[in-house]
């Protein structure tokens, strides 16, 4: 249940250890965000809203999850880094660290031991494929997944990256839900 993206009021009650009536009351008063299934009165609560509700009200997160996915976001553009931090942290299933240079990325992979590196191809100091190779050459990081994001879709460059050890590729701009899905899928595939 903890990996679900959308919850029913019953499921939310279970996660929060509250009664379903309480959840419905909070939903209807707007304290707990969500939407109604089109064409019916059923209430649905996105994970982001549920996490926010639990944090706002000091409800223990135990019911939600225990093992978070460790994500290292590497991009020289601070707006992109911030976007990922917002998206991943509000989701609740992830623990996030960030780097803006290839050098920092190298240092952080050693310290933070991420499950997955979300890597921009164009970095100010060293290129993405060098970062890929550095990670692949470290036996301790053999299970670390690499998801490359880039503004370009040149098939030749993509081939290069695959050879250097990248696991998957996403083009900017992206759908944030499918990025999250992709991250989870890659980490689970280990």
């Amino acid at each position: 249940m903890r990996q679900k993206a959308v919850f029913t009021t019953g499921e939310a009650a279970e996660v929060c250890n509250l009664s379903q009536q309480t959840i419905i009351r909070c939903f209807d008063s707007g304290q707990l965000g969500g939407f109604r299934v089109p064409g019916s009165r059923f209430r649905r609560i996105p994970r982001v809203e549920l996490v926010k509700f639990m944090k706002d009200n000091g409800i223990p997160m135990d019911g939600m999850e225990k093992n978070t996915i460790r994500v290292l976001v590497v991009d020289d553009d601070p707006a992109i880094v911030e976007l990922f931090v917002d998206v991943l942290q509000s989701d609740g299933r992830f623990e996030v660290a960030t780097a803006q240079t290839g050098y920092d990325a190298g240092v952080l992979t050693q310290q933070f031991r991420p499950d997955i590196v979300v890597l921009d191809y164009m970095l100010p100091d060293i290129n993405g494929n060098v970062v890929c190779r550095t990670i692949r050459n470290n036996p301790d990081l053999s299970s670390t997944r690499i998801l490359v994001i880039s503004g370009m879709v040149n098939p030749a460059e993509f081939e290069e990256l695959k050879k250097a050890g990248a696991d998957d590729f996403i083009k900017k701009p992206f759908n944030i839900e499918s990025v999250i899905e992709r991250i989870i899928k890659l980490v689970r595939s280990r």
């Binding site: 553009d77 992109i80 880039s150 503004g151 370009m152 701009p173 992206f174 944030i176």
Partner: peptide, 21 residues
């Protein structure tokens, strides 16, 4: 592609977050 798609990713990503909320 490199230069424009990055800010576009921010615009699109932020809009998607706002849509969720």
């Amino acid at each position: 592609g490199h230069e424009i798609n990055t800010p576009l990713a921010v615009v699109s990503g932020r809009a998607q977050i706002m849509r969720q909320r």
